[in-house]
Amino acid sequence: MSGLRLENITKSFGAIQVLQPMTLAFKAGQVTAIVGDNGAGKSTLLKVMAGIHKPNAGAIYLDDKLLTNLSAADHRACGVEMVYQDLALAKQQNVVANLFLGREQTRTCFGFLNRTAMAERAKNELNRLGISIADLNTPVGMLSGGQQQAVAIARAALFEPKVLLFDEPTAALAAREVGQVLDLIRQQKEQGRIVILVSHRLNDVFAVADRIVVMKQGRLISDTPTAATSMSKVVENIVG
């Protein structure tokens, strides 16, 4: 079976059970939004999928490969990328260094950086995604919030991942920057990737998601295609 599958995943921190046994499957070329109130467990679920938290029980498969108990770095190697809410960027480093963070291209010996190759590839990738940044030598901290978000997304997309996880991708953005980020998310879906996002902003969720999963107190409340539900129903599920 292809796709990403969670089977009876549970997670607790000490005595607090954050995730009740949860089974979900995600298809390629589909955007799934996970919504819910604070403390619903949606962020934890995302981090379990990214390999940052280990589940207490259950299994995660990606295209029939078992990912459970692999580290975050191994998840990345298997093609699961996460875009963090705080972006996890090195703000004093330039765009190229951030795009290749942890996966720098080196020449054959002594770990000498191949800066020209990285700059070239960074430029191509950003062009392909339609992200415009005047100077790739700019420290990332000097860019606008939307541009920083775009760099974080481009980094996740750079090594052709199978799964992209977004934690609150639009929460910190000004209204005019949201559109661009949603476009980038759609673009990833069109590439045939599994896209999963956690968000508080229902407007953005309805604008981009194909499927909406509502969670409450660590449980699955509803799981419906976006077309088959409405804002008021989702809100009702979240609150009720």
Binding site: R76, A90, K91, A97, L101, G102, R103, E104, T106, F110
Partner: peptide, 24 residues
Amino acid sequence: TQTQFGLHTLILGDNAFAAQAMGV
């Protein structure tokens, strides 16, 4: 300035969480 180690050093000092999350 020229090696992966140097860049990793700066990144670690910049954002230790990001460095770790990204496999540095």
